[in-house]
């Protein structure tokens, strides 16, 4: 009894010190964060005066702007097209990356058998590549493509197409790693070639999940595509930028309304399809 008490005392002390250290760490972190931020309170106070005006504007959208030529709907359509094409390109290009990054595939079909037995090199490299692609923000990728093809929606498609490979490829590789490998064994035992094993045992298992992941990324990409225009890559972002710069809150309201409704509908539709797929 006394022994456990003795043992408990230093443990308690240790925990208190640990808590204290954490508290000091967070206190320092917040002091550093807040004092370092240059806040011009006067400017903010002034701008807060227009909040009324902004809210009033946003809640009385300019309806005509929604329907007119090159208006909100036209641009929103382009945004959806960017998301659709970009996601499709990525969903296709991500397939080889997904297989490369899945460690059960690199183990089964080793390119360097001797190394592979000790460490899944190929899958490790595949995962790193996907990570790097994912970390490059699509806005930056879009800017780079704009340099090449000009400030068009096509640049947006290319940016979404490249950036989305990261997440889609990662999800693909997880689906491949989680699948049942039994059927692969069965087709091999039937005398199937590698391609036949892939086609009859792997593809039917992972394809519905691949579709589902691509749809999920499409949902995200509709959001992403709606801001691409702010850097010049087409879609609803461009009129939004102009409306914001001109403090034309009625137009901002119209754009926000359409974006929110469309994103909401796409989420619902895509969610319903995804539920049926898997």
């Amino acid at each position: 009894m006394s022994q456990t008490q003795q043992a408990a005392a230093p443990k308690k002390m240790g925990r208190m010190i640990k808590t204290a250290l954490w508290l000091i760490f967070f206190a320092a972190l917040y002091i550093w964060s807040f004092t370092g931020l240059e806040v011009e309170w006067k400017k903010i106070m002034e701008s807060l005066k227009i909040v009324n005006k902004m809210l009033a504007g946003i809640f009385t959208p300019e309806w005509g702007f929604i329907w007119e030529d090159e208006g909100v709907l036209d641009n929103m359509l382009v945004t959806l097209e960017i998301a659709l094409l970009g996601t499709t390109i990525a969903a296709i290009l991500a397939v080889p990356f997904g297989f490369l990054a899945a460690n059960n595939m690199s183990k089964r079909y080793p390119i360097l058998p001797f190394v592979e037995a000790r460490f899944p090199v190929i899958s490790w490299i595949g995962k790193r590549i996907l990570n790097v692609i994912r970390t490059m923000p699509e806005l930056i990728v879009a800017i780079i493509f704009i340099v090449g093809v000009g400030p068009t929606a096509f640049a947006g498609v290319l940016a979404i197409g490249l950036h989305s490979i990261g997440l889609i490829g990662k999800l693909y590789s997880e689906a491949i790693e989680n699948m049942d490998e039994g059927p692969m064994e069965a087709i091999t035992a039937c005398g199937g070639s590698r391609l036949q094993v892939l086609w009859f045992a792997v593809v039917p298992q992972v394809l519905p999940e691949f579709f589902s992941f691509a749809l999920y990324k499409f949902e995200i990409n509709v959001r992403a595509a709606s801001i691409l225009g702010m850097v010049g890559a087409g879609g609803i972002g461009t009129p939004l930028l102009f409306a914001l710069k001109g403090h034309d809150w009625h137009r901002v309201g119209a754009i926000l309304l359409v974006v929110i409704i469309v994103v909401f509908l796409i989420d619902m539709l895509s969610g319903a399809i995804r539920k049926r797929l898997v």
Partner: peptide, 12 residues
């Protein structure tokens, strides 16, 4: 031919 404990069918 081979028959497995877990059937090894493609379930979908």
């Amino acid at each position: 031919g081979m028959i497995f404990q877990n059937f090894n069918l493609v379930k979908r």
